[in-house]
Write a protein that binds this DNA or RNA. Structure first.
Lengths: 155, 155
DNA sequence: GAAAGATGGGTGACAGGTCAACTACCGCGT
DNA sequence: ACGCGGTAGTTGACCTGTCACCCATCTTTC
């Protein structure tokens, strides 16, 4: 017996559509803004934030992967590109022959220092300021609920 | 004078981080599920839905672009790929020498008929069921607010 | 009726992401 | 000392999206 209806109710469908549309547009707009203003992508940004928050701006590759919850191959490609642009460097690890450190360069620090205020401003302007504090609360709450569910469900 | 603080408050930052994390994980999971279960991507799905809802399963290229609010080059690439897989065909337009119709094929109809129930089930399981009806309402509401804001702000 | 510009649509180069497979090294048991 | 499973990280093929630019045709205007 299948007791869940096959389709979504109109309210459910509308909520889902609007959520998806919103999230696509918001993320798209934000990443275009960042790219245009600072020539850092959202992915660059995330990596650089993580590195600046680490002591000496260096992190083991796998720690970085875990911190941002990416796939390691994605990170590896990302670091390769960022290395080519001089934002980070790879260093080998004395303790562990397999290991690598990823280290932010001075150019990387400059880039993120320049980009961060504009990024924050855009997030504030396009998202935070669109909502009341209560609405923002409810975003946080809903996000946690969905994240919990995602972790509950094996696949 | 700049009267907005440079950084986000802890609550604002937390809400933003969780929203972004949620949205990435949810969309990622859903698209992996769809790919695995039906070998249709989310993009394929959107295009096919739009076409099945159109009379005779055919739509002018630009109407399709406007309906889903993509960039036309994205759509063009997408249609090229879908054409190669036999899901749609391009037809030329008698009225307008520049024009093109995109038409869903029988294989395209089969593919989406097979995929839709699984897709709906996944959306229900991972998103709808994670939330109470009130929470879902508030998602819809918040999404509309942010969308309005995106439309207000020129860039 | 011919240029000027707008519109419809396509293309190629490139950045990004996923998947699967691979290398190299660690740690442990025997 | 050796073998073996697990961990660290890379690579390559392939798919998707964006940007910038292209061509062809339609429409307007003079």
């Amino acid at each position: 017996m299948n007791n869940t209806p096959q389709w979504l109710s109109p309210e459910e469908y509308a909520a889902w559509r609007e959520f998806i549309r919103m999230q696509e547009k918001l993320v798209g707009r934000l990443s275009r803004l960042m790219q245009a203003e600072s020539s850092l992508s959202a992915a660059d940004f995330v990596v650089l934030v993580e590195l600046t928050e680490a002591p000496e701006g260096r992190l083991r590759f796998m720690d970085l992967v875990k911190a941002v919850e990416w796939e390691k191959s994605r990170m590896s490609h990302q670091i390769t590109r960022m290395t080519k642009r001089g934002l980070v460097v790879r260093e080998e690890c004395a303790d562990d022959g397999r290991g690598a450190f990823i280290v932010i360069t001075p150019a990387g620090r400059e880039a993120i220092a320049a980009a961060a205020p504009r990024h924050v401003e855009a997030v504030r302007r396009l998202f935070i300021e669109a909502l009341t504090p209560e609405e923002l609360d409810s975003v946080a709450h809903v996000s946690r609920r969905v994240l919990e569910r995602l972790e509950e469900m094996p696949c």
